[in-house]
Design a binder for these strands. Sequence first.
DNA 1: ATGCCTTACGTTATACGTAATTATT
DNA 2: AATAATTACGTATAACGTAAGGCAT
Lengths: 278, 278
Amino acid sequence: MIELYELRQFAAFVEAGTLSEAAEALHLSQPALSRNMKKLEDDLGITLFERKKNKLELNENGQYVYELARKVLDEADSLIVRARDYDRKNRTISIGVCAPAPVWRLAPIISNLFPHMTIQTEQDEDRRLLADLDSDIYQLVVTHEKPDDRKYCCKECGKESLMFALPKGHKYSRRKALSFSEMNGENMLLMPDIGFWGFVKDRMPDSRFLTQSDRVSFNELVQASSLPSFTSDLAEKYTDVPDGRIKVAISDEEATVTYYLVCKEGRRREYLSLFKAL
Amino acid sequence: MIELYELRQFAAFVEAGTLSEAAEALHLSQPALSRNMKKLEDDLGITLFERKKNKLELNENGQYVYELARKVLDEADSLIVRARDYDRKNRTISIGVCAPAPVWRLAPIISNLFPHMTIQTEQDEDRRLLADLDSDIYQLVVTHEKPDDRKYCCKECGKESLMFALPKGHKYSRRKALSFSEMNGENMLLMPDIGFWGFVKDRMPDSRFLTQSDRVSFNELVQASSLPSFTSDLAEKYTDVPDGRIKVAISDEEATVTYYLVCKEGRRREYLSLFKAL
DNA sequence: ATGCCTTACGTTATACGTAATTATT
DNA sequence: AATAATTACGTATAACGTAAGGCAT
């Protein structure tokens, strides 16, 4: 009976040109490879090589069998990839989000409702989230604009209000509220991966923003620095990092957003329990 | 690394329904099969079964992997078949003939010119011979009508004249020649597999013909019987069977035919030496 | 009681490596 | 001398079978 390892080794030989090179590539001794090539010929019942004195060459059969072998090997490789992919898709819920905060609330709820599922999240902008929802890359997405299309099933899943986090003694630290324009010009610390919140930079065109790509390092930076930074009501609630700063609400309307959890209408029933739990 | 025997055993399990049955079908012990199915799961890194207390069932992954596995296995099986077929085609010359005689002369010539080739012959009627030559089922055909089509390369390869073989003492045994109509009404022995020569039956509508499907048995029959039979100049020359009968030529034009060796024009060069040898 | 699957353990087959041999460049 | 392939022989991996056990129908 023919086996895949024979075909793998045969293909390796064809692609390498000599037994020696192929053996090395396969982490195998030359004699082993030589014998297995004989075995393959034997299993197939035909010759594959022309054995010249100091060189092993493919004959016509060999040329032809190589084409066929590649197909079998590719098919087998694709089996593995596709099987693992299929398995993964059946045990992970992929969620696309427009910002980090909604996950903090959703993740524990989903873990409870679907205890065997792994949750995988990715950040992107609203439009591409919906496109990738359409093509089943995500099962769920969270947008900050309500998609009004019948093909989606959607429900509000919380609001988030951005705030300034001012160091003690900052000139505005006693204020109840502040606007972007009032803070414009002040250099600020900006946490990474903030999704659509990136727009705040445009509201404060005269400010400079210092970012640290790693969140933990960023938090340390916040502790150490006296530059003002951002936070939000949800961040305060879910990410428990007492930093001794004074939180001041932002008065602009844009600083408060509503999040919407969206799935395909056709999958509504799968996630009914989740929508109810919100 | 995943191997074909694992996939074969997996497919056998799916098709049998239980490990026990599959093991039997595979001529394998149940524990071995059980272990190998675990190994397959391990190699793929996913589960394929739901292990109920007393039953092994496919899960969703298993269903899916089975489809993929069948494809790989079919591909591998087809590799073997196609490889052997390819090899055979490269080392056999398939010749289609309209009658047995031309082979007697051609076979030794071809064996000499292509010593590594196996010669395979098949009998059919002219039209189908040419059709099968077109579709590469034959590399060469022998017809008894000259095909006048530019796509063929053809050359005369001998004539054959049919004769009556009369037992000693037959009323016509002193004749130089005889016609079909003169012999019409006499019951005759007719050798099997005579190709287009079958038409002689139509020329002697009042005769009855006794056939014996095995050639050796037929020759014995000829020895034993006193019924007249057929032979030909080529049969006399190549098949050395002294039967003590008197051979009388047949005067009808139809009793002499010319054979034509034909190959595709595109393959002329391959068989140039053969055509020259005729 | 019988059928089906699994675990445990000893055996065998076979794929592998090392060393030596032959031949070629 | 260096590179390539094959042959010969001993080794080790892993696939296999037997025996025993658990758990259903």
